[in-house]
Amino acid sequence: MAKRIDVNGLNAYYGGHKAIEDITLHVEPRSVTAFIGPSGCGKSTFLRTLNRMHEVTPGGRVEGEVLLDNENLYGPGVDPVQVRRTVGMVFQRPNPFPTMSIYDNVLAGVRLNGIRYSRSQLDDLVEKNLRGANLWKEVKDRLHKPGAGLSGGQQQRLCLARATAVEPDVLLMDEPCSALDPISTLAIEDLIDQMKSRYTIVIVTHNMQQAARVSERTAFFNLAGVGQPGRLIEVDATDKIFSNPSEKATEDYISGRFG
Results as ranks from 00 to 15, higher is better:
G77H: 09
K43G: 08
P80R: 02
S44I: 11
Y74W: 09
P58I: 01
N70D: 15
G77T: 13
G40A: 00
M53A: 15
N72F: 03
L68I: 15
F46P: 00
F35W: 07
V56Y: 14
M53C: 08
E63V: 14
S31I: 00
D79H: 01
G64Q: 10
G59T: 08
T45E: 08
D69A: 06
R30W: 06
E65G: 01
V66A: 07
L73E: 03
P76L: 02
C41G: 04
K43S: 09
G59P: 04
R61L: 01
R61K: 14
L50N: 07
I36E: 11
D79G: 05
G40M: 03
F35C: 01
G37E: 01
T33W: 11
S39N: 09
N70A: 14
P38W: 00
V81D: 13
G59Y: 04
P58Y: 12
N72L: 13
H54L: 08
L73P: 12
F35Y: 10
V32Y: 00
V62Q: 13
N70M: 05
E71P: 00
E63W: 10
R48D: 07
S39V: 09
V81T: 15
E65W: 03
L50F: 05
G59Q: 05
A34F: 08
R30L: 11
F35L: 15
D69F: 10
F46E: 02
R48M: 12
G77L: 06
E71Y: 03
L73W: 11
N70H: 14
F46V: 04
P58G: 10
T57E: 06
T49F: 13
S31N: 12
M53P: 02
Y74R: 10
T33K: 07
P38T: 01
N72M: 11
N51L: 07
G40E: 06
T57W: 00
F46H: 05
G60Y: 03
R52Q: 11
I36Q: 08
K43Y: 09
G77Q: 05
D79W: 02
P76N: 04
N72C: 12
P38N: 01
G77V: 03
V81E: 14
P80D: 05
E71C: 04
F35H: 01
V62K: 14
R52Y: 02
N72H: 10
A34W: 03
G42Q: 05
P80K: 00
G59K: 02
G77C: 07
L73A: 04
G64M: 13
N70W: 06
E71I: 15
E55A: 01
V32H: 03
N72P: 09
N51R: 08
P76E: 05
H54D: 06
G42T: 05
I36N: 04
V78Q: 12
K43M: 04
V78W: 02
G37Y: 12
I36W: 10
S31E: 13
V56W: 06
L67M: 15
E55M: 01
A34V: 11
G42M: 01
L68H: 13
G59N: 06
E55R: 08
R48V: 12
C41L: 04
A34C: 13
T33P: 06
V32C: 02
A34Y: 01
R30E: 15
G60C: 02
G64H: 10
